[in-house]
């Protein structure tokens, strides 16, 4: 039993190291990207083995859905023939020494800080405060009530990323596929109800079990990307919907800031949520953030400002 568990873990870590090495050092770009996608899959299994199902859920939603899609599309736009030129071995050797040195220093620093972490962590404090947060799952309580400022800043960072990508130029026009794809519109139409149902389920579950706004938004965004691939959301590209699109993009952040200012008015602390309204407020913020995250991922996927 223990021998089998150890065998499973050893096999998993060996596969992970192999995939990471190939993703970094293969000269073929496409093969490297596929290795990275497989790395994401096994990484989710590692999070499961480390008993962190919340992280595994986020890894599954973001790693399998959105990162792979962004990398594959970017790969399709790169000029051909130069794939061997991008190899890291052609860097100047001083840069290599600098990279090795900084990696070594941060590894030592990380090992040192792991030794000095408070044991057994903040679990008891969070469990003691859980009843006042309005949700019964510790991770959601930390993300949306106790440390809501972190989540607020994360959403702001994502919005900043969208603005940066849009500032680079107009939205990219996709190339024609190499073969006819009669099944694609049917696939997106068949799967779309599931891409609405699963995020709703994750969002609702977030109050008492692993789930919540980020995985839900990422899955919804992946469904949106599938629609984009099948040309199902042409309204995003039309100039007359531009204002609506921008308003929807900032809706999550705006609601979050309004909640924060409301907390400042009612209790005197920014982002403090009164206990009586906590459940409803957290649900509203989660819905708005999930919708905004989904739309932001779709907006990133356009690789430029639409309607220009």
């Amino acid at each position: 039993m223990t021998a089998l568990t150890v065998g499973f873990d050893l096999l998993l870590s060996a596969a992970l190291l192999w995939l990471a090495w190939q993703a970094l050092f293969l000269p073929l770009r496409f093969a490297a990207v596929v290795h990275f996608m497989a790395f994401n899959l096994l990484m989710a299994l590692v999070w499961v083995r480390l008993e962190a199902p919340d992280v595994a859920l986020a890894e599954a939603a973001i790693g399998a859905g959105v990162t792979g899609a962004l990398l594959l599309t970017a790969l399709g736009r790169l000029p051909g023939g130069g794939s061997r030129r991008a190899h890291p071995r052609r860097w100047h050797r001083y840069w290599r020494y600098l990279a090795i040195f900084s990696a070594f220093v941060s590894a030592v620093w990380l090992a040192w800080s792991v030794q000095h972490l408070p044991r057994p962590g903040l679990t008891t404090e969070i469990m003691a405060a859980l009843d006042t947060t309005g949700v019964s799952h510790a991770v959601t309580a930390v993300l949306l009530n106790i440390r809501a400022i972190d989540t607020l800043l994360e959403v702001a960072v994502m919005l900043g990323a969208v603005m940066l990508v849009w500032s680079l130029g107009p939205a990219l026009r996709p190339f024609a596929p190499a073969t006819a794809l009669p099944g694609l519109p049917a696939l997106s139409r068949l799967l779309h109800p599931l891409f609405l149902l699963v995020p709703t389920y994750l969002l609702w579950r977030g109050a008492h079990a692993p789930g919540g706004a980020f995985p839900a938004g990422a899955v919804l965004g992946a469904g949106g990307i599938l629609l984009l691939l099948a040309d199902g959301v042409s309204w995003m590209q039309q100039p007359r919907y531009n204002l609506l699109l921008r308003l929807l993009l900032i809706a999550g952040l705006a609601l979050f800031v309004v909640v924060g200012l409301g907390g400042l008015l009612l209790t005197g602390t920014f982002l403090a949520i009164p206990q009586a309204q906590a459940k409803a407020v957290i649900l509203a913020v989660e819905v708005a953030t999930a919708l905004s995250i989904a739309l932001m991922l779709m907006a990133l996927y356009l690789y430029g400002e639409p309607g220009r």
């Binding site: 496409f30 996608m37 899959l41 989710a44 499961v48 199902p53 595994a56 859920l57 599954a60 939603a61 399998a64 859905g65 792979g68 899609a69 594959l72 599309t73 790969l75 399709g76 000029p79 051909g80 996709p174 190339f175 024609a176 596929p177 190499a178 073969t179 794809l181 694609l184 696939l187 997106s188 799967l191 599931l194 891409f195 699963v198 994750l202 579950r205 079990a209 692993p210 789930g211 995985p215 899955v219 992946a222 469904g223 990307i225 599938l226 691939l229 099948a230």
Partner: peptide, 29 residues
């Protein structure tokens, strides 16, 4: 909860494949 993670992987595999056929496997330029 692991069944949820499996559900996400099963659902998102379709997106990766659709991406590959429409945006990577193209008649490049």
């Amino acid at each position: 909860v692991l069944i949820d993670v499996a559900l996400l992987f099963a659902l998102l595999a379709a997106v990766a494949m659709a991406n590959f056929v429409t945006r990577t496997w193209t008649l490049l330029r």
